[in-house]
């Protein structure tokens, strides 16, 4: 059954999604207010913001498959907000890294990015998110043109792969369950897209062994 909300309903849905996306940030504020960061405050902040960056990245990638399966085309109207919240938590995650781990000392940050593969992967993923967030407006779509804009925003797939690598390299051998779970979800979402592209592609027939058609009988010598 197709559900098509009117403008007012869609507005309410957007508000609900906005508030829901703010809840993880609210949890951080609550921890700050109630002094409830746990024994390792920085680890809590970094894990929390990192997890929610990845959660929102996967939720954003779920929009297209859900829209195709349910025919709820209005879901597309939520994708921008979800993507921007993903960038918001990624920014908090990155800020907590450069602030708490390196006290904003640029030389130390650069060294860490260069020396530590898991930091390099995470940093690359964050860098790839910046142009996506910067071009998330209608104005940017018009300026770039739909096709170019779409090509640029496909880099979200690479961001997802880099985020998975970042997570895998970050944890000890005893804690691979979560990165594995995230990578399975990502693989399913990317796999679905590959399948869809193949399905939509119109095959061009090739007749390599075909002989030219003879419309006229050959003239006698």
């Amino acid at each position: 059954m197709s559900f098509n909300p009117d403008a007012r309903q869609l507005g309410l849905i957007k508000i609900a999604v906005f508030i829901t996306c703010l809840l993880p940030f609210g949890r951080l504020l609550w921890a700050a207010y109630s002094d409830d960061f746990g024994p390792n405050p920085v680890e809590f902040v970094q894990r929390w913001t990192g997890s929610w960056t990845f959660n929102l990245l996967l939720i954003t990638l779920c929009v297209t498959p859900l829209r195709t399966i349910t025919q709820w085309h209005w879901l597309l109207r939520l994708r921008r907000m979800l993507g921007l919240f993903c960038f918001f938590y990624a920014s908090l995650h990155f800020l907590s890294f450069i602030g708490f781990d390196h006290a904003f000392v640029l030389e130390d940050i650069a060294k860490d990015i260069y020396k530590r593969p898991f930091v390099s992967a995470g940093f690359a993923a964050f860098i790839l998110l910046i142009p996506l967030a910067a071009t998330s407006s209608n104005w940017a779509i018009r300026k770039l043109g739909g096709r170019k804009w779409q090509e640029l925003h496909r880099s979200i797939y690479l961001t997802g792969i880099l985020a998975t690598i970042h997570y895998f390299w970050l944890v000890k051998a005893t804690a691979l369950l979560w990165p594995l779970a995230y990578s399975v979800v990502l693989a399913v979402l990317l796999g679905w897209r590959i399948r869809e592209r193949r399905r939509k592609a119109i095959p061009v027939p090739r007749f390599q062994s075909a002989k030219p058609l003879k419309f006229f009988k050959q003239k006698p010598d």
Partner: peptide
Amino acid sequence: IRTLLLGAGTAGFGLSY
């Protein structure tokens, strides 16, 4: 850190740690 985070001006939503 409390000032830093509360400065963002959003009300807290608590989930127990």
